[in-house]
């Protein structure tokens, strides 16, 4: 149940890329933060819905996954620099891993992240695909 509750708390960020923006310095954070690390106590954070478009900053190809991700291997995990500012770690889907390049433009899609066995809760959220 602990995992279910944690997953449920993450729904806003995983479904709709809700991050934080500091009204003082303008910096954008994902996931959400409570305190701006730049402005400290002067900072004022508010929720921001990130647009879900950006570029691949760097990536890695996973050839040896854990058992639960065997059906999607080999797969690409990338750090994406969003147009809104923040960097996020995400899977890149619907691609040949060998075709992925740093700098590729990507957009957010909604996918299944993991399942707790065949009778547990299913977690959904963002992944990214290369724009064409």
């Amino acid at each position: 149940m602990k995992d279910t509750v944690r997953g449920w708390r993450h729904i806003p960020q995983r479904y709709n890329l809700i991050g934080s923006k500091c009204l003082e310095c303008g910096k954008v954070f994902f996931p959400k933060r409570i305190i701006c690390p730049e402005c400290r106590r002067k900072g004022q954070l508010e929720d921001i819905k990130l647009r879900g478009e950006g570029k691949i900053y760097t990536y890695s190809i996973i050839n040896t996954p854990t058992d639960e991700f065997k059906t999607i291997a080999p797969y690409v995990v990338a750090i994406v620099e969003l147009d809104d500012g923040a960097k996020i770690t995400t899977q890149i889907v619907d691609c040949n891993p060998e075709d992925v390049k740093i700098g590729d433009e990507v957009e957010m899609v909604f996918r299944k992240i993991r399942e707790e066995g065949d009778d547990g809760v299913i977690s959904y959220g963002f992944k990214f695909r290369i724009k064409k």
Binding site: T71, I72, V93, D94, V109, F110, R111, K112, I113, I122, Y124, K127
Partner: peptide
């Protein structure tokens, strides 16, 4: 469907 796609993900994409 890709292994990480199901009726919920397809519905969300179409709905968005």
């Amino acid at each position: 469907p890709a292994p990480d796609e199901d009726t919920a993900t397809i519905s969300v994409e179409a709905a968005r």
